[in-house]
């Protein structure tokens, strides 16, 4: 450890480790950020599972949603809890457009064509925002949820993150129900399994792809819509979230929404514990190391087939 410089002094750390409350607090923080990751990942997971396409601009979709919510709050005074709907709708359209203008044309090209094309889109969106909105960090103040916290004994639960977590669970549940117990969902599953066969059954797979890209965008749009309450928005904010979403989806397993939820929670908790008990800089090292460890043993992720 010496080479890396430990931020917490040894005796202090012992004190922390032995406190049960601290462990619980770190766990709660991890679960709350994990739910957010899961929501971001769910959208990506849907697209990946149905189309076998990685949307590299996923993190940038999140950033766009955050800007939508931020500007609505800043210019029109709309609270993020309301503008979350606008952000979701906006990114739904962005997803539809992305499919219609870009991803549609990568079908049948080399497997990574869609990834590279959407990377180009990510560069475009990121630098457009950089150019228009400057690299400044922006955060909304005086929102309804604001800096409110809920005290549970010794534990502190931040309300904005809690609400985000609840919304994340709701949206993920809704998407899961949509895929598993509606006619549309069955059509989606059929398309994911065998595109040609689904077309022969009279399913308009083109429209399914379009809607899936839209719904995947809406998921990340909703996540991004709430975030300006507690997280600053800037043009680079999406990159890390995008990467973590890739990790969650790949770790959870090809197109498995419960897998993405589980992986999101796991990533959140590992990040939280590594950040607290080892060193803050190690939290992402731990997360990405966890991914490598998981795929080394299960090539298709935890819930993959």
């Amino acid at each position: 450890m010496g080479a890396f410089g430990s931020p917490i002094h040894c005796s202090q750390r012992l004190l922390f480790v032995h406190s049960m409350e601290t462990v619980l607090q770190v766990l709660i923080d991890g679960i709350l950020s994990g739910l957010l990751y899961a929501l971001v990942a769910a959208g990506l997971c849907l697209i990946w599972g149905v189309m076998d396409v990685i949307n590299f601009a996923h993190g940038e979709f999140l950033m766009v949603a955050m800007y939508v919510s931020y500007w609505l709050g800043f210019l029109a005074g709309v609270d993020p809890l309301v503008s979350v709907l606008a952000a979701g709708a906006f990114v739904f359209l962005l997803g539809v457009l992305t499919y219609q203008l870009i991803v549609k044309y990568t079908v049948g090209k080399p497997p990574l064509a869609a990834l590279l094309a959407t990377f180009g889109l990510a560069m475009l969106i990121k630098n457009f925002c950089l150019n228009r909105f400057s690299p400044n960090f922006r955060i909304l103040s005086d929102t309804w949820l604001g800096d409110k916290t809920y005290h549970l004994g010794e534990l502190i639960i931040p309300i904005p993150q809690l609400v985000t977590g609840i919304i994340a669970l709701l949206v993920i549940g809704l998407v899961y129900a949509l895929i598993n117990s509606t006619r549309f969902g069955w059509a989606v599953q059929a398309t994911a399994m065998d595109k040609e066969a689904a077309e022969l059954m009279g399913i308009n797979t083109e429209r399914i792809y379009l809607l899936i890209f839209g719904i995947g965008g809406a998921c990340v749009g909703i996540a991004g819509g709430i975030m300006p309450t507690y997280l600053a928005v800037h043009p680079e904010v999406g990159s890390l979230f995008g990467l973590i979403a890739f990790i969650c989806v790949a770790m959870g397993g090809f197109g498995s929404i419960p897998g993405a939820l589980f992986a999101g929670l796991l990533v959140g908790v590992v990040e939280s514990f590594a950040g607290f008990y080892i060193a803050p800089v190690f939290k992402y090292v731990a997360v990405f190391g966890l991914y490598l460890a998981v795929v080394a043993f299960r090539r298709k992720g935890l819930f993959g087939w």
């Binding site: 080479a3 890396f4 410089g5 990685i54 990574l112 800089v281 190690f282 990405f288 190391g289 795929v295």
Partner: peptide, 29 residues
């Protein structure tokens, strides 16, 4: 570990390796 993976899993594994090295180098005195 990486060459056992294929397609997107390989791509994401290489991203993860970049992030790990980047963060390790940042704190390596």
């Amino acid at each position: 570990p990486c060459f056992k993976l294929s397609g997107h899993y390989f791509a994401i594994a290489t991203f993860a390796i970049v992030e790990i090295f980047f963060r390790m180098f940042q704190v390596w005195d």
